[in-house]
C-alpha cells in the first residue's frame, strides 16, 4: 500500500470532510468577542459560557476604570484651575463659566467598536466646537457651537496632558482652528472613537443617533 493509498483511505474516514462554513454573522460575532478581550493579561483557563457573555461588560468596566484613573492623574492642578476660571472673566463675558475637561492618556486603553447606546448612557456632556487657542500649559479652549447633552455653555477648556496622543479620532490631538465632536464622562473626555474631528466619517452619525 503506497502513501497515497494510505492517505486516501484515511481521508475517506474523515468525519468532517466538508462542514458547512460558519455564517458570516457568527464569524463576526466570534471575532468581536475575541478582540474585545484584553490583550495584556493572558489567562490559560477555559472560559465558561456565562463568563464569555460577561466579557463585553467587563471590558466596559475596565475602560471606565482606566478613564477614571486618567482623570485622577490628569485632572487640572489648582493653579491652572484658577487661571481657567479668571480668563473668561477678564474678557468680560458674563456667560457661564467654561466647562473643564481632562484628556485621558492614550495607548493603554483597548477599544471596542463605538456604539450609540454606550455613548448615550455614558456621556454626561457632549458638544461640537472649534479650537480657538491652545496655551503654553496645553490647555485647549474650544468655542462651543452645539451642546448635545449636559451643561449649556459656550466655552469648554480641556487640560490636554503633554503626552496625550491618539486619543482623538483624526490627527490624535486638538489643533487650533479645527472642529471637534467631544463626549465626556464625569469631566474626562471619552476616547475610543467617541470623540474626534467632526469630519471623521460616522462620528456625526454616532452623535446624532445617541442624542
Amino acid at each position: 500500500m503506497t502513501d497515497d493509498d494510505l492517505r486516501s483511505r484515511l481521508r475517506n474516514a474523515d468525519p468532517a470532510p466538508s462542514p458547512a462554513p460558519l455564517p458570516p454573522d457568527r464569524v463576526a460575532r466570534l471575532l468581536e468577542k475575541t478582540m474585545s478581550a484584553d490583550v495584556a493579561t493572558p489567562t490559560t483557563h477555559t472560559p465558561t459560557a456565562p463568563r464569555r457573555r460577561l466579557l463585553p461588560v467587563l471590558a466596559a468596566a475596565a475602560l471606565l476604570l482606566i478613564a477614571g484613573a486618567g482623570w485622577l492623574i490628569f485632572r487640572p492642578d489648582q493653579p491652572i484651575e484658577s487661571n481657567l476660571l479668571t480668563a473668561p472673566a477678564t474678557a468680560s463675558t458674563p456667560a457661564v463659566a467654561p466647562v473643564l475637561l481632562a484628556a485621558p492618556a492614550g495607548g493603554s486603553a483597548k477599544c471596542m467598536e463605538p456604539q450609540a447606546a454606550h455613548l448615550a448612557t455614558n456621556a454626561d456632556f457632549a458638544f461640537a466646537g472649534t479650537v480657538t487657542t491652545i496655551d503654553k500649559n496645553d490647555v485647549v479652549t474650544l468655542s462651543v457651537s452645539k451642546v448635545y447633552k449636559g451643561t449649556q455653555t459656550t466655552l469648554v477648556q480641556v487640560d490636554q496632558a503633554p503626552n496625550t496622543s491618539e486619543t482623538m479620532l483624526g490627527s490624535g490631538t486638538f489643533e487650533v482652528g479645527k472642529s471637534y465632536l467631544v463626549a465626556a464622562n464625569e469631566g474626562t473626555i471619552m476616547i475610543c472613537g467617541y470623540s474626534g474631528e467632526s469630519d471623521i466619517p460616522g462620528l456625526l452619525d454616532l452623535f446624532e443617533q445617541a442624542f
Partner: peptide, 8 residues
Amino acid sequence: SETLLICW
C-alpha cells in the same frame, strides 16, 4: 473560542 482568544 479559546483558541481564537489565544491567537489574538
